[in-house]
Nucleic acid binder design. Structure first.
Lengths: 300, 300
DNA sequence: CATTGTCTGTTCATTCATGCAAAGTCCACT
DNA sequence: AGTGGACTTTGCATGAATGAACAGACAATG
């Protein structure tokens, strides 16, 4: 290769630095050491005879040449990811790695035993679970499958709506054993989501019930809310599949139709023919259907 | 990087094998050893868990997955070449390498001293000259500049038409000192281009002059024809800038308007702002204009 | 002002990719 | 059948790329 030409991987390095704004950030993004990224950029700029970044207090800022090269890198990245998915999409073996993302509540309250069952059925499939309340980028293959609540699925993904997630008001059993729904919610301490958790629909509901003013305990996760209710710190709206499994809690209302959400099972269109992903989607869908009652909040 | 993902350079290897049809051919195309290409492909197929080529008697034939990956590689290659040209296009230094392609006759008979002069003017520019009668692919950056005869410039290139190349009939001086053009061409032995040289216009002219039948000496290069005429083996149509400089030869006709061709100076649009390329184009254009008379075949 | 965290830049040891050389296979030609 | 050329595959030595460790700079925080 001529010394002066750019190597295809050069674009990937320049793109990463451009996006991260620093060598250390780019190193994390590329799973390389920052020393390697430092040397790679140095080599690229020397070979091409052009400066791609301005070094300053704010980190690495791309020059016009750097921006052009990063833009090319972004287009190449889309091509490579597309090719990767299509190649992976031809994979007919029930082995290899499968990355699934879901929320902490779904994982702890519902999915963990299902994932374990799946692993027992398919010992050659490596399951990597990413717990996150952020929607992972399935286009970038940060995950292969997402199991998460949503009103509508994101564009560019395919999937199935597999269940309703019912929610109701819960309190600690020892304080609310004989709670009469006719009493209303006034006079109770409430526990709610903080701004970080960003649960707008619940916030609206509490306003409508005129109990938002009594909400002096805010937590940044559903599991945290569950624990707080279990300690008798107040009452809260919680998903039935999560709260009904906790013997410390008692349900104080019927499931709230206006706070019901859909549970979706999502993947990228190019991956739906991958054998191990198809097997996983089918398994989880069937297992969830079997637990329909639990998710709907049916009691008995 | 996840073991299962494809590296961007993987696409380049798969593209090269797909285009070449063999590991050896791909190795030449990539400037790698065949052993390296063998191991690279092996690594790619193992990492992706898919077969990209069928090994057979006819060499390496891509599978559908290999075709898809090679198609992606071709698109990535265009992106990379474009980025490379644009980066190179920002180069304002009068240093670095400049690759120029031209024909053997132009080089030997006209350009060699001009290139030497340019080198003396710009000692920091490395000049690489590729002598070829094939049109190099400037889009692929096989060369940066082309100096060559053409009727019209190729698409996608920019350039200037810098001269007419006049041609006339020449013979050895010792045999044709007192040749009278009124005698016509009959009774003379002719030297012409072979099928390899592929000079269709000259072939047509000899047919029209009804001397093709007397052409029993065919050579695969203009320089070869020049030598043969110098040895007194016959007469031939030769470029005036080439033949007039050889004291062994005498011109036997006026320049033949119907065999005049244009001399073009060509480069890629993205490269025309590169300082060293611009300097070279300007220098050669000016030097050729100063030698207009020689190229037109003006005598005196 | 001291401490902490993040980042850049350098040196050294280790690992990995590469080319060289060799051996083997296959096909075309004499 | 023998020969030569093109190609594939493997083993070994070498050099290049990488990460670990270290040092220094800078900014935010208490």
């Amino acid at each position: 290769m001529n010394e002066q030409t750019m190597q295809w991987d050069d674009l990937r390095v320049v793109l990463a630095i451009s996006e991260a704004g620093s060598l250390s950030g780019a190193a994390r993004r590329l799973s390389l050491s920052h020393a390697t990224v430092f040397r790679r950029l140095d080599g690229i700029e020397r070979r091409l005879g052009v400066s791609l970044f301005v070094r300053g207090r704010r980190g690495y800022t791309p020059t016009p040449a750097g921006e052009d090269m990063a833009a090319t890198g972004a287009r190449v990245e889309r091509e490579v990811l597309g090719a990767e998915r299509r190649v992976a999409g031809r994979d007919l073996k029930l082995s290899g790695t499968l990355r699934v993302t879901t929320t902490d509540t779904l994982f702890a309250g519902l999915l963990a035993p299902l994932f374990a069952d799946f692993r027992r059925m398919h010992p050659d499939i490596v399951l990597e679970v990413a717990i996150s309340n952020q929607l992972y980028n399935l286009t970038r293959r940060d995950a292969d499958v997402a199991v998460r609540p949503a009103s509508t699925p994101p564009e560019m993904l395919v999937g199935r709506r597999i269940a309703d997630i019912a929610q109701a008001v819960y309190g600690a059993r020892e304080y609310h054993e004989n709670h009469d729904a006719e009493q209303g919610w006034h006079g109770l301490d409430w526990i709610g989501p903080d701004a970080q958790l960003g649960y707008q629909a619940l916030e609206v509901w509490m306003q409508q019930q005129t109990v938002a003013a009594a909400c002096h305990y805010r937590v940044d996760s559903m599991l945290g809310m569950l624990s707080a209710v279990g300690e008798g710190a107040g009452v809260a709206v919680l998903p039935c599949y999560l709260a009904d499994a906790d013997s410390r809690l008692v349900r104080l209302s019927e499931p709230l139709a206006e706070l019901s959400t859909d549970l979706w099972l999502l993947t990228h269109p190019d991956l739906r023919r991958v054998a191990r992903i198809r097997a996983f989607l089918d398994f989880i869908a069937e297992a969830i259907i079997e637990r329909q009652a639990r998710l709907c909040g049916t009691q008995g």
